[in-house]
Design a protein around this nucleic acid. Structure first.
Lengths: 123, 123
DNA sequence: CTGATACTTAAGCACATGCTTAACCATCAC
DNA sequence: GTGATGGTTAAGCATGTGCTTAAGTATCAG
């Protein structure tokens, strides 16, 4: 059984629930960038950008390292995978139940065609 | 080119950034449920549950219909897919850049050796 | 050294979020 | 009708979020 409710998903989804932070993630998916490079597309003060960056780092989606006076940020793909896998497992669960329902309905119809009386008992 | 920053991702990720709401999504992935059924696993007042449900509905992750006095909720798989696909596209972008970097490094190494054989550096 | 660059820290503020309790409304069973 | 069931609405409150400006630190360029 998969672990469906790890608390670590909280900060990941929280971090992704903001267009500025998603923009940063998308930028970093193309390769590492400095803080100012990350800030450039956004009409926002640098402290605001740094705060977004802290949210991303705390969530584990981004890591960074300071060399000289430049902080270089890179994406942390494992956190991305953690979120994607949770979503995928939910989708898969939904589809499995959909398929079971579908099979059940097909069976119902098949039996009705033949005899119109016999029914499977399982729900 | 895919549209990477639709605003509709905001409420979806926001909705998923809470363990109670993820629990409800996981429950609904197994099949429809009433409000009280959804509330049952959580140590929380019913109005709180209904508020979480509203967040899920506004995000498009869940839909519901009231029949008699019972509101039946079901998952809305398209919203789940929207979120999953964004994550997957970021992961894919990261991997593509990783592969390009890898190829570049391999090429560098080949040139350095002048006559050296090609090597895979990503075992 | 001097000044510019690249952040960093601190404080403050408006608004959003996640609960609560109390009261209310609409079925359904009898 | 009465009462129980399932849900809804309203109000309030503590805490969190997303910015801002102002001021500070550390490095590099000359």
């Amino acid at each position: 059984m998969l672990n469906h409710h790890p608390r670590s998903l909280d900060p990941i989804f929280q971090a992704l629930a903001d267009p500025t932070r998603r923009g940063m993630v998308a930028r970093l998916a193309q390769g590492p960038a400095s803080v100012s490079e990350l800030a450039e597309p956004f009409d926002m003060s640098l402290p605001a950008i740094v705060q977004h960056l802290q949210v991303l780092e705390t969530s584990g989606l981004v890591a960074s390292e300071k060399i000289g006076r430049v902080r270089t940020c890179r994406i942390e793909p494992q956190a991305l995978l953690t979120a994607r896998d949770w979503l995928e497992s939910q989708r898969a669960a939904w589809e499995a139940r959909f398929d079971r329902l579908d099979a059940y309905l097909a069976q119902l119809q098949a039996k009705e065609k033949k005899h119109g009386r016999k029914r499977k008992s399982r729900a």
